[in-house]
Design a protein around this nucleic acid. Structure first.
Length: 898
RNA sequence: GGGCGCAUAGCUCAGUUGGUUAGAGCGCAUGCUUCACAUGCAUGAGGUCGGAGGUUCGAGUCCCCCUGCGCCCACCA
């Protein structure tokens, strides 16, 4: 038997324990194992990231699930890995280059990629190390990276298949463009937030008018939030029902400054109530306008460079940044008396989710995936319950998005990522630049789609082939994660055993980015759902409710907390305060919960180990030797096992944690340990102490893996070597004992009542008092011998059986009633103040009268007695009897005091 | 414009299908340096469950409306 150090030292021990688990390879899940498979896949953190509280919460939950299932005997696989995060990582490396005054084009594509790989090798595993310090029991030997060869093959395979089915196309569309990152973004990657911007009203003259004086005759007024886009205007649109503009029917307008002629088109999509009802049409720079342009066969004039500067089509504004240009144009319009006014206007503006630059809707040629056919299947499996969201409300959010899904822009004009596996034959294609190729259907001449570069063109035999310069959206590899990490497209025992996985634990932010797409990919390529349950946890916020983010400086770094109080304390705390799917409001003091609990568990264990004698621990517990407290704690232990299982099954982690906290602290420590100090036969008590501790440690292990393992290693009994792989406890029916639990609860209430008297009258804890316990209510009966002994010991009192009138007269007695037992507490005259006692009793009496009135009224109500179920009515009657008893008792007390 | 969430003790929050006197942690008050633990022990105070209405024998819990806060989605030029 090892002795535990006086103080628990997580800083020192957690790392050691983790290493010993790793050495023994205990996180490994055997794909050929005989256990039932249980698999979860990590939401791959991106390689530029560092562990934040969101990760801590997310991964603690997953670790709880996987440890729980592992102990239940499953072959439990937690598949770890990281995500290459194309734009984010490229930005990081570009910043490094910028320190030397270099841009990525200066070093060239191949050199640049080499630098990114170097960066990845050096820094890309930071987050993995941090997950280890959190205690995550991932199967690290299986760690995957989205740019690994295997996963890259999966990406190519998927691209080719989608292309061949006609689900991938390339063409000119308005997409979200980040001028800073200089790439297209998907709709999900543009974060919209409301901005108090300006709506500018500008005069557009009618061609041929001599002056600009009369509105809707000489000129019309258009309203826009982005005046700089007028450089690309090709028309003005109005609603055909809008009479104000019917005069424009055969007219042409003149674009101010640029002096371009603008067509007038009428379209029902134009809202007459917005602005002036006249809409300037810029097909190359606005999605609505783009649609109008297509419908009315208008040209598109793209006036911007990729970096957001105005290009040569912008005339005198060429070279200006878009916002600079906005100012210049407004000034010029004012100078020419073409500017009417500007007003405040709240509207949603897209921002790049990686660099927060304002996104520019921009016409460009990109690759897309047709999503509707994929979404159809994804909707079905959620509607029919094959995949369940927890909490359920996310189902609606998911379905709403899926039902309104739009095509996915998957090409990015960056270098870090999976290069699009398409080669163009420059001889066959008439285009000068391969960027200009449109692809609307599979099998276009001169376009070669496949995993490898073809030797020569299949059409002309030429060898002048050039690969598409773009890379794929990072999520185009992430959406394959549940099966690509298991070896797909190759078949194998891993894929076979662990797919479909069991649960996905993630944050709401990536339901669209990731969850929905994984479902679609799984159904499309594996013909099966990727997971059965999706648990969406809340967002971690600071104490004021703001989302924690590095840029706001309001983060609490999990690593600091781990350094401070240990990973166990961090884990237990964050789980305790996170109820199902609700956001978490975090502040440093919240971690006291876990720290204090770990300390409590440590000290209780220390006490047990110091006191039990090894010789008493052999053999089973003999039910015949059990005292009341033994029976009670074993019964409660069984209930605790059931509750923990029930709550884990329902993804109610905080409830499971609360059940354990209450059992270990308030039942085992507060009562059982205290009673064990004086009651029962040593041999049995030692066995029970250890048995309950053992089971408690196991139940707590998924939540606090380190401390439970460390204490486990010190236990002096026959046991499995490691708690992490020991079998999960099962309730032992033979210890069910409701009767004892009820009797124990009675004793607890009586003890509390007597302690209350002691505290109220300020009796020194060293002073012994005399009490008499007398059953008042027939059915309650006498307190059992054990219970009476607990009362006597824990209240430091001498129990006098059947106190005689004579004895009673000798003392100033305080009478209390608890659990049908009348308690006479003997106190000496000088302690008891008659007035104080009168006040105490009267106050209590008042409260009881209130309850009683309520119950009486209820029972008088015929509707209640006739309609309510019999057991409820009986309960009420029972309450009534109890309160009547208590009231009469107190009345008697009060009378005696007068 | 649609959708969702929250409002319960001084603070932060639980409260599962409606049914004992609505719970926890922190904080507060009082008393304890009792040999596992002051990161502790004991006892206690503190709530007309945001407002109005409805369903029901019975509502913190279900329905409708209102108020305040927060989030998500949408081509509000």
């Amino acid at each position: 038997m090892k002795e535990l150090p006086t103080r628990y030292n997580p800083q020192e021990n957690e790392e050691k324990i983790y290493e010993s688990w790793m050495e023994e390879n205990l996180f490994h899940a055997d794909e050929k194992g005989s256990g039932k498979a249980y698999c979860i896949v990590i939401p791959p953190p991106n390689i530029t990231g560092v562990l934040h509280m969101g990760h801590a919460l997310n991964n603690t939950i997953q670790d709880i699930l996987v440890r729980w299932k592992r102990m239940q005997g499953h072959d439990a696989l937690w598949m770890p890995g990281t995500d290459h995060a194309g734009i984010a990582t490229q930005n990081v490396v570009e910043r490094e280059l910028a320190k030397n005054g270099l841009k990525r084009r200066d070093v060239g594509r191949d050199n640049f990629l080499k630098k990114v790989w170097d960066w990845k090798e050096e820094y890309g595993t930071t987050i993995i190390r941090q997950l280890k310090s959190l205690g995550c029991s991932c199967d690290w030997d299986r760690t995957r990276f989205t740019m690994d060869e295997g996963l890259s093959n999966a990406v190519k395979e998927v691209f080719v298949r989608l292309y061949e089915e006609g689900l991938i196309y390339k063409g000119d569309y308005i997409i979200n463009w980040c001028p800073r990152c200089s790439t297209a973004l998907s709709d999900e990657e543009a974060e919209h937030c409301d901005i108090e911007g300006m709506l500018y009203y500008i005069k557009y003259p009618v061609k041929g008018s001599k002056s600009i004086e009369k509105e809707n005759e000489d000129y019309i007024v258009v309203a826009t939030t982005r005046p700089e886009t007028m450089l690309g205007d090709v028309a003005v649109a109005a609603n055909p029902k809008d009479k104000r503009y019917s005069f424009l029917k055969d007219k042409t307008l003149v674009l101010p400054i640029v002096e371009r002629e603008l067509k007038v088109v009428f379209d029902r999509d134009v809202d007459p109530d917005f602005g002036t009802g006249a809409l300037k049409v810029t097909p190359a720079h606005d999605p609505v306008d783009f649609e109008l342009g297509r419908k009315h066969s208008l040209d598109s004039i793209n006036v911007m460079h990729p970096d957001g500067r105005i290009n040569s089509l912008g005339g005198k504004y060429e070279g200006m940044d878009r916002f600079e240009c906005r100012k210049a144009i407004i000034k010029d319009l004012k100078d020419r008396n073409l500017f009417i006014k500007s007003e405040q206007h709240l509207h949603a503006v897209g921002h790049c989710y990686r660099c927060h630059t304002v996104v520019e809707p921009r016409l460009s040629k990109q690759w897309f995936v047709k999503m509707k056919p994929l979404a159809k299947e994804g909707i079905k499996v959620v509607k029919n319950g094959e995949i369940k969201f927890h909490p359920e409300r996310w189902t609606k959010v998911y379905l709403n998005w899926m039902e309104n899904i739009r095509d996915w822009c998957i090409s990015r004009q960056i270098w870090w990522g999976h290069r699009i596996p398409v080669w163009y034959c420059k001889d066959c294609l008439k285009y000068k630049d391969v960027r200009d190729v449109n692809i609307t259907k599979p099998g276009e001449d001169g376009v070669h789609v496949g995993g490898e570069k073809p030797e020569k063109c299949s059409v002309c035999g030429g060898e002048n082939l050039e690969q598409d310069p773009d890379v794929l959206d990072t999520w185009f590899s992430s959406w394959l994660w549940p099966f690509s990490t298991l070896g797909w497209p190759e078949e194998g025992p891993e894929l076979d055993k662990f797919y479909p996985t069991d649960a996905l634990v993630t944050a709401q932010e990536i339901i669209f980015f990731w969850v929905a797409r994984m479902i679609m990919a799984g159904l499309k390529f594996k013909k099966d759902i990727p997971f059965r349950d999706v648990y969406i946890h809340g967002t971690v916020r600071d104490a004021t409710g703001t989302k924690m983010s590095k840029s706001l400086g309001n983060v609490i770094d999990p690593l600091d907390v781990i350094k401070d109080v240990g990973s166990d304390a961090l884990r237990f705390s964050i789980i305790s305060i996170t109820s199902q799917g609700q956001d978490v409001f975090l502040s440093k003091d919240k971690f006291d919960i876990g720290r204090n609990f770990a300390n409590k568990l440590w000290n209780a264990s220390r006490y047990v180990l110091m006191n039990v004698e090894e010789k008493n621990l052999t053999g089973d517990i003999d039910p015949a030797d059990l005292t009341l407290a033994d029976k009670w704690i074993l019964d409660q232990l069984g209930r605790t096992i059931e509750k923990v299982d029930k709550n884990l099954k329902a993804y109610r982690f905080n409830d499971a944690a609360a059940v354990l906290y209450d059992f270990i602290w308030h039942k085992y420590c507060d009562w059982y340990l205290e009673i064990s100090k004086f009651s029962g036969n040593k041999e049995t008590v030692h066995k029970v102490l250890i048995e309950v501790l053992k089971v408690s440690l196991k139940l707590l292990h998924p939540f606090m893996p380190f401390i439970t393992e460390q204490i486990w290693q010190s236990l002096p009994v026959q046991k499995e070597k490691w708690i992490i792989t020991s079998p999960w406890p099962i309730k032992q029916k033979k210890f069910d004992d409701q009767e004892s639990s009820l009797e124990m609860e009675r004793a607890v209430k009586i003890i509390t009542a007597v302690r209350n008297v002691r505290a109220f009258w300020n009796i020194a804890h060293t002073a012994e008092i005399e009490i008499s316990l007398e059953p008042k209510v027939k059915k309650s009966g006498k307190l059992s011998e054990d219970a009476a002994a607990y009362v006597s010991k824990l209240c430091k009192c001498r129990i006098i059986e059947n106190m005689s009138e004579q004895d009673q007269a000798k003392i100033r007695k305080i009478e209390v009633l608890a659990e049908g037992i009348k308690i006479l507490v003997g106190l000496s005259e000088d302690i008891v103040d008659l007035e104080k006692e009168k006040t105490r009793v009267s106050k209590k009496l008042e409260d009881i009268e209130k309850y009683l009135t309520g119950i009486n009224n209820k029972l008088k109500n015929k509707k209640f007695t006739e309609n309510a179920p019999a057991d409820i009515v009986d309960k009420e009657k029972g309450k009534q009897a109890k309160w009547k008893e208590e009231r009469d008792f107190l009345k008697g007390n009060l009378a005696a005091l007068k």
